[in-house]
């Protein structure tokens, strides 16, 4: 049993348009967010599972929740309906949830998102933050590193394995350079890759229990962030224009009758690829 003392864990999760729905609309080239189902960013499920598994491994009862000596708070910045994603995390086993919702937040970039999340994390006194590696809509993969920078927390990103040894967090990760073993004392930000675990399905008991778990909604004033520092008007980059790209010209599709390879080679030669 490791001797890490009471961890106050935050898990940052985002609600995103369902990536399968996006695919369905591929033919008309527009992402109409209103009509798309919103789901919990699937890469964030691994972060939730990691937090719960870490608490279980360091709990005298082997369970998360009361009696474990640690707490797990899920945090999301988003519209009102992002509370559905938070409820899902609660039903998996997180203890409570914070939704930061404010009209002024619309159009926030990663810099503003990380500013808001960092404010909530400091205010709550969290010392360990779990994130996914990217949100499947924005696909920037920068919020965890920005959080580490803003909070001055140790950055342990792209973890494929996480454990607490004494009071030190150890991770193992695969990078361009190879397999790296990293460690840091708390406070730390950890982002996890999808190979790390198999997120649990909420049990019936978990779903019932989640309904009684606290979910508080806060606005910018509650967390002490000035409205003019976030949202689209404060974004430090701006989109000049966006054009639907013409769909790939309907490709050739042939059934192999023994001659397909030769046709492919001719096609490649025509495009100067061989």
């Amino acid at each position: 049993m490791s001797n890490i003392s009471a961890m106050k864990i935050a898990v940052c999760i985002k609600q995103v348009p369902d990536s399968w729905a996006e695919k369905k609309m591929g033919s008309d080239q527009r992402l109409d967010r209103e009509s798309v189902d919103a789901v919990l960013n699937d890469l964030d499920e691994y972060a939730i599972e990691s937090a719960i598994a870490l608490v279980e491994a360091n709990s005298p009862t082997g369970e998360a929740g009361e009696g474990s000596g640690h707490t797990i708070t899920v945090i999301s910045m988003g519209p009102e309906r992002a509370s559905e994603a938070l409820r899902k995390a609660l039903s998996m086993g997180a203890d409570d949830a914070i939704l930061i919702s404010d009209a002024a937040l619309a159009g926030s970039d990663a810099l503003a998102t990380s500013k808001v999340l960092a404010a909530v994390i400091s205010q709550g006194g969290f010392d360990l933050v779990f994130c996914g590696t990217e949100s499947t809509d924005a696909r920037m993969s920068v919020v965890p590193a920005m959080l580490a920078e803003r909070l001055g927390f140790a950055q342990l990103t792209f973890a494929g394995k996480v454990e607490a040894v004494g009071s030190t967090m150890k991770i193992s990760r695969q990078t361009e350079f190879g397999v790296e073993e990293m460690s840091a004392d708390l406070p730390a930000v950890i982002s996890v890759v999808e190979k790390i675990n198999e997120p649990r399905y909420p049990s019936f008991k978990g779903i019932m229990a989640s309904k009684k778990k606290p979910l508080v909604t806060q606005n910018l004033a509650d967390i002490g962030v000035v409205a003019t520092e976030v949202g689209s008007s404060a974004a430090w980059s701006s989109v000049k224009d966006s054009l639907p790209r013409p769909p790939r010209g309907a490709g050739v599709k042939i059934v192999d009758d023994g001659n397909a390879a030769a046709q492919l080679v001719a096609f490649l030669a025509e495009r100067k690829l061989v």
Binding site: Q29, W236, S237, S238, V239, K240, L243, P244, R245
Partner: peptide, 10 residues
């Protein structure tokens, strides 16, 4: 499916 042009403003 979409091409975006953007600039940094700050």
């Amino acid at each position: 499916s979409t091409t975006v042009h953007s600039t940094v403003t700050h």
